[in-house]
Design a protein around this nucleic acid. Structure first.
Lengths: 139, 139
DNA sequence: TTCAGATAGTCAGTATGCTGATTAGATACA
DNA sequence: TGTATCTAATCAGCATACTGACTATCTGAA
């Protein structure tokens, strides 16, 4: 019989909540939320892009990116500069403050993912990641 | 090298978004969101419980349950009655309107989960569910 | 019996994530 | 040139999900 609490969609929701909570605990040090950290990590690899380009990288809606970036600006991790060749868009740049926590943030991301998978065998980890990628990319 | 976009936590977030969007499309017919449908489905199996008990079943915070139930009451799917033996709590009951869509909702939930897993082999489906359950229950 | 502590639910505030409307600026073509 | 269309970002509004404060009520121990 179909059991809602054992269904894929329910499990995805609950595991996502757990991953979010785990990351949040560790990011309090930097006053960052998990999603802010994801955006900042991408900008640390490549900045000077606009909000739409960042949204494509992290697969988020334009309005969601807007909110996250404005928070990162307030926190002093990111600076917005009007693009001189297209005044509608802003170019995003990371600050020194962001560079200073780069390595610690990466370390934390790795630890969260290891903690989540700690009870899984090597085969389960592999198939889990492969399956989730298939689901993400489907259609 | 660690790739954020291929990490478990990022994939969980994106797959969860996909599952949510897929369910939302199909639930528009009933004016229900996925989380409202989850709550209602549980109440259809067992009502006459209070909000905290429902929250345990669907693993949601008391304030989140409060919001979802009040929406379901507004929509006419649920009725709240003050518990005579404990006036702090309300007992939740489903309406005829809820019973009328019970089977269609269940059907839709099954279809969403099948659609999500359509590109996965039988072995991948099994290991995916087992792994997610381990992650959900860990700690 | 009374009162301190526990409990159920709500509200305010914050963050994420979406849709749809709006503004400002860019572009393409008649 | 001018206008219609497109685009980048923001805003309002809604849903979910949490924390912490608060109200009303219940319960247990002195």
């Amino acid at each position: 019989m179909f059991e809602l609490n054992d269904s894929l969609s329910f499990l995805l929701s609950k595991c996502n909540q757990k991953a979010f909570a785990l990351a949040q605990e560790r990011l309090i040090t930097f006053s960052l939320t998990p999603e802010q950290a994801v955006a900042l990590t991408h900008l640390l690899k490549k900045d000077g892009i606009n909000q739409l380009q960042l949204g494509e990288m992290i697969q988020k809606d334009r309005t969601t990116v807007s909110g996250i970036i404005n928070k990162l600006v307030t926190l002093g991790y990111v600076i917005k500069e009007t693009n001189p060749s297209d005044k509608r868009s802003s170019l995003l740049y990371v600050t020194e403050k962001a560079n200073a926590i780069k390595d610690a943030m990466l370390e934390q991301a790795i630890e969260v993912n290891q903690a989540l998978m700690k009870d899984l065998t090597e085969q389960q980890r592999e198939i889990l990641i492969i399956s989730l990628k298939k689901i993400r990319n489907s259609r």
